[in-house]
């Protein structure tokens, strides 16, 4: 019996030790740095990812409203998180521990880095360490965008360091209110040209404009830009609250109802007032 209690005590104690134990990250992993620049766009990508995959346990950053688990998940904006190097955070997200899931196969490396970019957006002192691209020289990418009405295709001409080049990744999206609708993904041909289909049935705004996001990528070098292009049919957008309906606001009540109501009320109250005034003249009647 005594041994039994002792065992429980030991297990409990051991649990405590595990909880308090540092989550050690191999040194070479901790030194890893992001090849992607933590720019605003990248931070926003991370924020969206965070809301979908992390909020349920870690809560909203800066609010310290993470779930009361043991070990505590912690708040990404806290000192405990921010004091760790980027590589350590990257490793922990990838590998997981205990309740923390393994994200290695769920999130791409780029996505994990965007999460870290989001965490760092809460730290004003943070300076992103430079990634050593080694021999690889980041090309300076530029592109021109046009629309060929005859074949309903977007034409993207890409220049890498001022030269056309074959095999550069080009993707295009229609920018919707909440997300990007992919038009397609292709590579440039030997003339540096990439063609992307645009569905002619896509509705534009009232002027027929569509916001097109084009993204060009060669290695770690990424260039993207959003352009408003007049490539769709101008849409006939009718307001949902046009006209006079029974459900419209009071000032847009149907005319027939307004007239009927007022006629009845004025009619009846006219007679009532006529009688009331008549009564006050009762005294004078002989």
């Amino acid at each position: 019996m005594k041994n039994y209690i002792l065992l429980i005590f030991f297990v409990l104690n051991f649990g405590f030790v595990v909880n308090a134990q540092e989550w050690t990250v191999p040194a070479e992993e901790a030194e890893k740095v992001s090849p992607y620049i933590f720019e605003d766009d990248f931070v926003t990508d991370g924020e969206i990812l965070y809301e979908n995959s992390c909020t349920s346990c870690h809560g909203t950053p800066t609010e310290n409203n993470f779930m009361p688990f043991s070990p505590p998940p912690g708040d990404p904006a806290s000192e405990q998180f921010q004091s760790q190097p980027d590589g350590a955070l990257f490793y922990k997200i990838q590998k997981g521990r205990g309740i923390m899931p393994v994200f290695e196969n769920i999130l791409a490396e780029e996505e994990i880095w965007s999460l870290i970019a989001y965490f760092r957006s809460f730290n004003k002192e943070y300076v992103q360490p430079e990634f050593d691209y080694g021999d690889e020289v980041l090309s300076e990418l530029k592109f021109d965008l046009d629309f060929d009405e005859n074949i309903d295709k977007l034409v993207v001409k890409v220049f890498s360091d001022g030269e056309v080049e074959e095999g550069i990744d080009v993707s295009a999206f229609v920018v919707g209110m909440f997300g990007k609708f992919p038009l397609g993904k292709t590579k440039t041909n030997e003339l540096g040209l990439a063609y992307l289909d645009v569905d002619p049935s896509l509705p534009g705004d009232k002027q027929g404009n569509l916001d097109i996001l084009v993204r060009v990528r060669k290695g770690y070098a990424i260039e993207k830009a959003t352009t408003s292009m007049k490539i769709a049919e101008p849409a006939q957008q009718t307001s949902l609250i046009e006209g006079r309906h029974l459900w419209s606001t009071g000032d847009k009540a149907p005319v027939w109802l307004l007239v009927t109501f007022l006629l009845i009320v004025v009619g009846i109250w006219g007679v009532i007032l006529y009688i009331i005034f008549g009564l006050f003249r009762l005294k004078k009647i002989g």
């Binding site: 969206i48 979908n52 229609v174 209110m177 909440f178 997300g179 609708f181 509705p203 849409a235």
Partner: peptide, 22 residues
């Protein structure tokens, strides 16, 4: 999926995939 009928695009809240509403 949530979106704007005028754009004919809806975005899935979990996967962030944007598709044509119609």
């Amino acid at each position: 999926y949530f979106g704007d009928e005028n754009e004919d695009l809806v975005t899935n809240g979990t996967t962030r995939e944007t598709v044509r509403l119609s």
